[in-house]
Computed example of a mutant assay.
Amino acid sequence: MNPMIEFCTNNYVHGTDNIKQKLEDNPEYDVIEYNCLGHCERCAVTPFAAVEGEFIEADDPDDLIDLIEETIEERKAFDDLFDQL
């Protein structure tokens, strides 16, 4: 199952629309956009996304994409370890 990455269209003002497009190009990710993800207080001031429901924010879009990919890799490593048990 592919990791789900969710974006708020209201947050595109912070450059997250470009990140969404880059991530959509990767067939290993499920990328979804919503009109609102309910994090309005943070949405107004910082780029963010939700990875498997976890709120991820950064100072700029480049940092955000790095954090998204790190979060996905950490979750994958944990899942792989769990599968070995």
Rank of each mutant, 00 (worst) to 15 (best):
E33T: 07
H14P: 09
K22N: 10
C43T: 11
T9E: 15
E33F: 00
F78A: 14
L37F: 07
T46E: 15
V31N: 04
A49W: 03
R42G: 04
N11P: 01
I72S: 01
D80F: 02
G53D: 07
L85D: 09
L23V: 03
D79H: 03
V31G: 01
V13R: 13
C40D: 02
L64D: 05
K76H: 09
V51M: 01
E70W: 14
E52D: 14
T46L: 14
E57Y: 08
I56N: 01
P61S: 15
T16G: 04
I72F: 06
Y29A: 07
N35G: 15
H39V: 06
L23M: 12
A49I: 05
E28H: 11
E74A: 13
F82C: 12
R42E: 09
F78P: 00
L23Q: 01
V45Q: 07
I68V: 12
N35F: 10
C8H: 06
E70K: 08
C36S: 11
H14I: 10
I32P: 00
E28S: 13
I68T: 01
D60C: 14
P47Q: 00
G53W: 00
C36A: 10
D80P: 02
L64C: 10
V45K: 11
T16I: 05
N26E: 14
D60F: 13
Y34R: 09
Y34W: 14
D62R: 09
N11M: 02
L67G: 06
C8K: 03
T16E: 03
A49G: 07
E41G: 10
E69N: 14
E28P: 01
E69I: 07
K20D: 06
A50H: 11
E69R: 05
F48D: 00
N10Y: 05
A77N: 13
I32H: 05
D60V: 11
L37S: 00
K20I: 05
D59H: 08
L37W: 01
E24K: 09
D66V: 13
F7S: 00
D66C: 02
F7K: 01
T46M: 15
D62P: 02
D30S: 02
I56T: 00
D63I: 02
C43P: 04
K76P: 04
D66R: 09
P27E: 13
D25L: 15
D59E: 14
A44M: 10
V51H: 02
D80Q: 13
D63T: 10
D79P: 01
A49K: 02
E73D: 15
I68S: 06
A44H: 06
E24R: 08
A50Q: 11
A58N: 05
L37C: 06
C36M: 06
E6G: 05
T71E: 14
P47K: 05
E41V: 12
K20Q: 14
H39N: 12
E74S: 14
I68Y: 02
Q21T: 11
A58I: 08
E52L: 08
P27T: 04
G53Y: 00
V31W: 02
D30N: 04
P3W: 07
A58K: 01
P47S: 07
L85P: 04
P61F: 10
Y34K: 11
L85S: 13
